[in-house]
Write a protein that binds this DNA or RNA. Structure first.
Lengths: 344, 344
DNA sequence: TCCCGTTGCCCAAACGTTTGGGCCAAACGT
DNA sequence: ACGTTTGGCCCAAACGTTTGGGCAACGGGA
């Protein structure tokens, strides 16, 4: 890798060693495409490349960043990296970034406005070239302000205003969930809708209600509960729903973790999930299929969403005109709604 | 935040605006402690600070990095950020880093040697000041080599050789698990031990076996199965254990996800977890308590481990002598081993 | 009065890179 | 033989910061 105590290898050390000028080395090592020929003879170029490889030359980002004004750094702000959904999206982002020689910096916003501001400021202080936000709120003054300031960013998972975004088609996902439960005969259903400020929960809920309405069934407002996206939130909401005597026969949680909480609540109430009450989640977290009672869910290509978000951002940074993308979800029926395994 | 179309605010722009020299501004804005007084009069210093704040000056890391040779960047390599355990540790790292004005860069190694090398090289190319590895292997030639090359790093979660590390006291944790199962009367027990190269699994297993041996019970080798740390791995291992007629009465999985897989396998075999068979995990993931059948686990202060790792690294970077730390785990007994809730 | 120590600031170099513009010689066209 | 192109390379400036060393002016002690 690197010699034990060697001085850092720079363009100058390579140039001196070869009796060339530093700029020649720089040109050769940068754009083999157009400038490659102009920069040096094939022979010289070859010698440069060989020595650079041998010494393990890696351009110093401080030097190039200073000169070019670009850092090749991408900031990624998410509610929490320990949230499996966002972590998976982040992996997609990071993977695509790596392929382009970009480095990502992740930070948690905890869905808190104050934290968002300070973390964003830190990322900008690091001179990131662009940002990806995974914590957009439906009415997001902060993002509007940022956009007005000329900061370049795209949104992922959650949409907001008409800032460019890559999200699952949550409206469609909500319809798929409704279709599934309706096919199973559930007409008295409830929704654990997540916090009201997240487009994911809101759109999934809206799609779900749409489908029922289109089928002539109106779901009363009392059947839609807002909650946190986590297990505790889901458990509390499900508990409220199930303790009533006219409890719903099926519950759609807009997030797998909330659904797992609902599973626990159902058990506390002595209900057999899949038989006495149907419960389904959303996102098809790896855990869903592996639970003791496998959880019906709506699969979302999270990794791919992350990749696309980074691609979109690089196109934005390149000055191209870009448009938001919605990726289609797929239903994954399992035992928690009494459905069999997928397959014929 | 930043003016719409303003030129970037630099030391020079501040200095010019105040009719001062750039170096004066730099000194004032850097060390108010010692140099503060030497640098400028109280009055001048005040003017500088006020203008800097007003313009929202943020030092350019490229400039300072170039000059000082330090990037204030910390690289963090983990198997996967989407693994809840490592994600939580990472959050601790990042939190502590933020408090010190450091920025972390996370990367996935997927526990693959080739990926580790390339990702580490990328981080070094970014000129990180130090590294934190969460994917150490018991016999880790790569880390040895890195240390020999003078790269500064600490390990987290997993230990290796005598590189400095911050880990849970896994040996103790294993003993706690054994003690719990033994107290419940289980003498025929099995271990789902995780992959053999991870100190976590190995030490937990060793501690577990130690305690049984100390109590006069020898667990046969066939009762210790290696597996992946994830749900699928746990399910497969548990399936092997439970399909035999002389199946164990209790299973200790060294990781909650493997334990969840085991829960599923138990269900597949028609066994009631907590009654017919006891199953326990490790790490006390937030999920453990929320599962339909709450999972007995061993709680580990993951967030704190992350914080400590970063502190250790900063001390190392400051040239101090440092020593590895082990943090004590706590048993969290729940229904999956037939234990009641915690409490008196 | 002279000297010395502070105070308060400025000067300049250096870190490593990129890039617009040279400049010399060889090759080519007529 | 003479102009023009082109290949192949060098020059130098600039990006923003830190930091060791100045250098005046001023105040105080002898």
């Amino acid at each position: 890798m690197a010699d034990p105590k060697a001085r850092p290898v720079t363009l100058r050390s390579i140039a001196d060693q070869l009796g060339l000028h530093i700029s020649t080395v720089s040109r050769v090592l940068n754009g083999p495409a157009e400038d490659g020929a102009r920069a040096a003879s094939g022979d010289t170029a070859e010698r440069i490349r060989r020595l650079a490889a041998e010494l393990g030359y890696q351009p110093d980002p401080h030097g190039s960043g200073l000169r070019t004004g670009r850092s090749r750094l991408i900031g990624v702000l998410v509610p929490r990296v320990s949230d499996l959904v966002l972590a998976t999206i982040y992996e997609g982002i990071d993977e695509a970034a790596g392929e382009r020689g970009l480095t990502t910096i992740a930070a948690n916003s905890l869905d808190d406005d104050e934290v968002r501001r300070t973390r964003t400021k830190m990322l900008l202080a690091r001179r990131v070239d662009g940002l990806i936000f995974g914590d957009a709120r439906l009415d997001d003054a902060f993002l509007d302000r940022l956009a007005a300031d000329g900061v370049r960013f795209v949104l992922v998972n959650r949409r907001a205003g008409n800032h460019p975004s890559v999200t699952p088609d949550d409206r469609l996902g909500g319809r798929l969930a409704a279709e599934h439960l309706l096919d199973l005969g559930h007409t008295d259903v409830a929704v654990i809708a997540g916090p009201p400020f997240a487009s994911t929960g809101a759109d999934r809920t809206a799609g779900f209600l749409d489908h029922y309405r289109d089928s002539g069934i109106r779901i009363p407002d009392a059947r839609v509960l807002h909650s946190a996206f986590d297990t505790a939130g889901g458990r509390a909401a499900a508990d409220t729903l199930l303790r009533s005597p006219d409890r719903p026969t099926a519950i759609f949680a807009v997030n797998d973790f909330a659904a797992i909480g609902a599973l626990g609540a159902a058990r506390d109430h002595g209900l057999r999930v899949g038989a006495d009450v149907a419960i389904m989640g959303y996102n098809d977290t790896p855990l869903a299929a592996e639970l003791p009672i496998p959880l019906t869910s709506v699969a979302v290509p999270m990794h791919e969403i992350g990749r696309r978000a980074l691609e979109l951002l690089t196109r934005l940074l390149a000055g191209e005109q870009i448009e938001s993308e919605r990726l289609a979800p797929i239903l994954a029926p399992r035992a928690s709604t009494g459905a069999g395994q997928t397959g014929p």
